[in-house]
Design a protein around this nucleic acid. Structure first.
Lengths: 151, 151
DNA sequence: TATTGTTATACTCTATAACTATA
DNA sequence: TATAGTTATAGAGTATAACAATA
């Protein structure tokens, strides 16, 4: 028929995608129960440590475009979790912040993230889990990956 | 302000998504140069070892729905890489197969996959790379993950 | 002119379900 | 009735660029 070529499963990237996607999809299902997507969770989490952030800063922080931030913000404002205000000095600038409801929701979402990670990687021994962490951080460091990952 | 909660970067899943998405996006860019998406590549690769496959079997093999397979097939037929034929015995059934052009393209795409994996994980030592592989396969096995991952 | 944000467009992947044709 | 496939619809993420308002 045709020449034998390397199977997709010969690649580390193949297994990495399989694990990452499965874990992310589990996570997406969990947070969907709280009425948000994973991207929205990251957005809310980024605002949790700040009084407010501009769309531009948030875009850099999340590794997304300004346009994507606008859409996300629209949805979260619609859900009552985020507020948008104009800057008084520079009237081009906006301030995005958590509403009281949004701020209350972040710890619940963080607990879901804890639970998801525990379930996903709890099948590894403590040593294996630590080694996996080390290797992943090593890759991020050596390859220069950045930005919060969004699925 | 608010209670301190665990940072997203405390989770293995966070780093896994970051690495996986970066590697997948690199890969997507590479194969885009050949005019296909990653999902299309997996589709073509699945047909490479067979004379033909039904949409149903392909859906199971790729972990996708029949509807998604239909759309993918439409695009690949449009690109001249795949053919669709009716079964003579059971006129509900279809046969999806690689065109000559499609069959010629798979080894090129496989070479891109090889190169992408080498670049992505070449920053690890041979031992570290092997250990990462082992841990990922362990997770797939113990958690029962399945289906080809599509980004 | 440059910058801040929003809006518009388009494409991919995903999921569900309605629908057609055939068995 | 059940099965094989296609088609329709909708939501989410991504990317690019056009656009309005302000500096």
């Amino acid at each position: 028929m045709s020449d034998a070529i390397s199977d997709l499963s010969a690649h580390t990237g193949y297994w990495m995608r399989m694990v990452s996607n499965a874990v992310s999809q589990d996570f997406a299902r969990r947070v969907a129960g709280e009425g948000v997507t994973v991207a929205e969770l990251v957005f809310l989490r980024a605002l949790y440590d700040e009084r407010s952030l501009s769309p531009s800063l948030l875009a850099i922080k999340m590794g997304m475009t300004k346009g994507a931030i606008s859409k996300l913000a629209d949805r979260l404002i619609e859900k009552g979790l985020v507020t948008r205000a104009e800057d008084e000095a520079d009237r081009r600038a906006h301030h995005l912040a958590l509403s009281a409801e949004g701020r209350a929701k972040v710890p619940q979402l963080a607990a879901l993230a804890d639970a998801n990670d525990a379930e996903a990687f709890g099948v590894l021994s403590v040593e294996e889990h630590a080694e996996l962490d080390r290797l992943l951080r090593l890759l991020v460091e050596r390859r220069g990956f950045s930005s919060v990952p969004i699925d």
